[in-house]
Write a protein that binds this DNA or RNA. Sequence first.
DNA 1: TACTGATCGTCAGCATACTGATCAATATCA
DNA 2: TGATATTGATCAGTATGCTGACGATCAGTA
Lengths: 154, 154
Amino acid sequence: MKDNNDMPGHLARRFQQIAVAVFLAEVEDAGFDLTPVQYAALATIKANPGLDQVTLAGLIAYDRTTITGVIDRLVQKGLAERRPSSRDRRARELEITDEGRRTLRKITPAVESAQRIMLRGLSAKEGEELMRLLRKAIAAGNELSRAPLRDAQL
Amino acid sequence: MKDNNDMPGHLARRFQQIAVAVFLAEVEDAGFDLTPVQYAALATIKANPGLDQVTLAGLIAYDRTTITGVIDRLVQKGLAERRPSSRDRRARELEITDEGRRTLRKITPAVESAQRIMLRGLSAKEGEELMRLLRKAIAAGNELSRAPLRDAQL
DNA sequence: TACTGATCGTCAGCATACTGATCAATATCA
DNA sequence: TGATATTGATCAGTATGCTGACGATCAGTA
């Protein structure tokens, strides 16, 4: 009988669970209230000013129906803006605010600390190897989820 | 600037996302409607007849407030039973039904197939190494989430 | 035994994720 | 051009996960 610990799916769930908890704890210690999902979205908006929601979702592999709520909360916190696109009246253009920029800058040490903590049981070499294997497995399975990673097509 | 692909937290999220999608697809192909979370709970109930909800939650590292809904759905599907404990009037004893046993038996090939598919980008050796590193990182971070893994204390 | 603290299950509330549907707008092509 | 298909955003509904609170119960102790 296969144990849970032999199931990559179960290990994936556990590792994610810990990763989220560590992220939230570090960010809260730094005095901020931002989830991992909101952080990734905000950082991607900053790096791609004016992008629309579908493109953002593709860049971080979120479902398009999930991104709506995430952006709602970023807007509500004053970290991002959503305005109608001039080129496509269906689309919304996303922009980071000054407040969002400030938050990203000040939160970075906590985010990096979180990434270290979630690998604290591993040596530096093992941490690298874990990330390499995850990247490889993810690349092979990219199309298997409803929200695959996509390049920004310009 | 750190890329998403250098963040273990982001990789964890992506891998989990793919793992869940693969699991659901395989299980549905086999003609069943069971989530990864429900599967793990049901298998653990079968292996530990009469256990209470807190113990179950500890064995699979679920939050105790989450397990309530999961069991609701297993009971509603006729796969498990929840009855008051005779020893502790606060607690509920969980039992798998015959239907639950049948489902577990018939669903096993799909579950195992799913575990293979989510590692399909890796060699057998790499898959083993990924699981080893995940187990190690998880062991070190076990206490960092609200729902750590716990042994059944009897 | 009476008090105190811990524990079991549940609840309300919030934040991801997904399925499938819909509306508006754009693209494509016969 | 006109019919058709596709796309961007949203919505309702469902299922995890979590925080913090609660009532009922149990356990340990003064």
